[in-house]
Design a protein around this nucleic acid. Structure first.
Lengths: 356, 356
DNA sequence: ATTAGCACTCCCAGCCTACGAGTGCTAACT
DNA sequence: AGTTAGCACTCGTAGGCTGGGAGTGCTAAT
């Protein structure tokens, strides 16, 4: 495929680019006449027709029906994205808007993530997905027990990705605030820098001696925290812009849109689909086109995703989901920018808290 | 209208009920023949035709076109809901499922609210909305300053509705943990039981003497908390089941569905629309049918809503949004049940925390 | 190698028709 | 007087037909 890319004649490339650009903006199959008129290639429509026939034979274009114009195939889009697409920056306006919104929302991670999803959706005019930071794998910055009443304790965990997770724990035997402070201090000393998942084993073995009086309490606490991690991992997915997706002509038929929306409403599926995005490491924006998607429901969609993270570790991902007829250059720029932005803000939060 | 209800002959009522029941399940205009066959009223279709013509004259039924069956008008639905509808309980299955889910989710309010929205949507097969507890008007149960680093303090607020709100505050001058504890204690003593909104004035006047050294700190803290309240109030709206809504035949046309979905995607509009639901006090399930809705976008929908709350105070609302052809008896039962359930759980949380 | 010309294909929109569902009316019946 | 059977009438929908337009592929000329 790549070899073919090298070999393709320039005029053919230009035609493929023209067809793709035109179809991306008009959503109508594009004919040879249109290309000849709108894109000054200096050749007649007949020539373009011949080239287009070749491109179809080679699998880059297809015809919805015999006497319609051509539209790019998945392979055509792939070629467009890999070698034809002109890199584009965000318009100053969008960039300013994003900056402004991020300025307002920097204080709380969940709000930040939610806002990111909304902005992605509005600017791309597609559905957007943001997977928030996971608690499960995050490093712990701080852990604290706060007495609420004689029977309840608030367990507070702050992670390096800025997440604050909390649960209320009922206790059987009254514990004095100073006990809680002492436990908090010990937990902090031992656990800072490790993840919640690692933590449990370590504590239950190493610390038990020191805190044996509170063994059952600690056990309950970890039970609760692990359950909390689990449920908060289910709640990491923020989807927005479903409406924009429905506005796209390829989804004017509800029947066609339904599977995609169903998919997007299932946090679980979304998490699974985006797991791949994270695996390539920070800074890699991945474009998945139509049939390249593993998930059946997304075969008629393209997904542009990028992971974000702190200190070189991936903690989540942002993505845009739209029809294969996607404005790839705009969306890749946007998704990359947003992922970078999130990483930056999280890094600042991280520095801030560990800078003692 | 109510007088008319008294006067209406029993047979006419039975026919109106039959038409409405049938249309609710089939989504097809229902003719006199169908009524005569499926609902044993002991009269011929001709008689029913006559009655139906009367009901149409009186505005309870309407005809989509001249030779179609009848469908209930908004007025017809209103009469059905007010006097015809047979009260129904949830099926054991749904009730069990709700209980089980609530058992799992009782530990964290946000998860609870989110789960409620999801269950509402799935069971009603319509869109669902849950407005989470507001921080702004909630009573404060506990407030605590937690040192994170030398430059940052976590401000923690626990409300009687079980909400835990937190913000990270950067401080200029280093404060010793014991200072923070002292401030926490004083804030707690003074503020427990009042709302955040009331709190600020009180503190800045009364406590300033006692805590004058920390005046700027307190000022910043309140600034942050008030901002936090504001943004968290924007994020109280949980919508689910949009997909189910699209599955309803009246929304098979995306053009018709769009305004409604747009409305549901705008948290702001949803909040405004549901503000009314809260005003009637706890325990009141309100049904708003089609043109009875103030919002233009909802004129083709019905909304069933009920507020929930703690200690007699309304803190939020649950609602189902669907086509006017709604299974009113099922949905009102469901919405009422969910609102009650939420209230109960919140009450238990409340007792738990104040029971010291 | 490129282009003009032309026949051909196919979708789409509009029109017509047959059909079925359901009504409203009238006249007969209890 | 209320109820019912019968029937003509209305109207929307589905299926079939047609003309126009867009676009192609092929061929022959440049």
């Amino acid at each position: 495929m790549r070899a073919m890319a090298e070999n393709m004649a320039d005029r053919k490339k230009a035609i493929l680019r023209a067809v793709t650009d035109d179809y991306i903006t008009t959503a109508e199959p594009v004919g040879s006449r249109t290309i000849a008129r709108k894109y000054g290639l200096g050749v007649s429509s007949a020539t373009i027709r011949n080239e287009m026939a070749d491109l179809e034979d080679e699998g880059y274009l297809e015809q919805p029906h015999a006497s319609a114009g051509r539209i790019p195939s998945d392979k055509g889009y792939r070629f467009y994205v890999d070698t034809l697409m002109t890199g584009r920056d965000l318009t100053g306006l969008a960039e300013k808007r994003i900056r402004a919104e991020y300025e307002r929302r920097r204080d709380e991670v969940r709000a930040l993530v939610r806002t990111t999803a909304r902005m992605l959706g509005e600017i791309s005019q597609c559905a957007s997905v943001v997977v928030g930071p996971a608690v499960r794998t995050a490093e712990i910055r701080h852990i604290q027990l706060v007495p609420l009443s004689s029977e309840t304790v608030l367990v507070l965990v702050v992670t390096n990705s800025g997440l604050v997770e909390h649960r209320v724990l009922s206790i059987e035997h009254t514990m004095h605030p100073s006990d809680l402070d002492r436990i908090s201090r010990i937990l902090n000393n031992r656990l800072r820098g490790s993840t919640l998942a690692q933590m449990r084993g370590a504590v239950l073995r190493e610390i038990q001696a020191e805190l044996s009086a509170y063994a059952t309490f600690l056990d309950q606490m970890f039970e609760l925290l692990l359950a909390a991690m689990h449920s908060s991992d289910e709640e990491r997915v923020y989807v927005d812009g479903l409406m924009q997706l429905l506005a796209q002509p390829e989804f004017k038929d509800v029947g066609r849109a339904r599977p995609v929306l169903e998919f997007l409403e299932s946090d679980d599926s979304v998490l699974r689909a985006l797991a791949a995005a994270g695996s390539r490491g920070l800074g890699a924006t991945v474009v998945t086109i139509g049939s390249e998607n593993v998930m059946d429901e997304l075969q008629s969609c393209s997904v542009v995703s990028a992971p974000y993270g702190v200190a070189g570790r991936v903690v989540g991902a942002v993505a845009v989901v739209g029809p294969t007829r996607l404005d790839y250059s705009m969306v890749t720029a946007l998704v990359g920018y947003m992922a970078e932005g999130l990483s930056e803000i999280l890094a600042r939060l991280d520095l801030c808290e560990s800078g003692e």
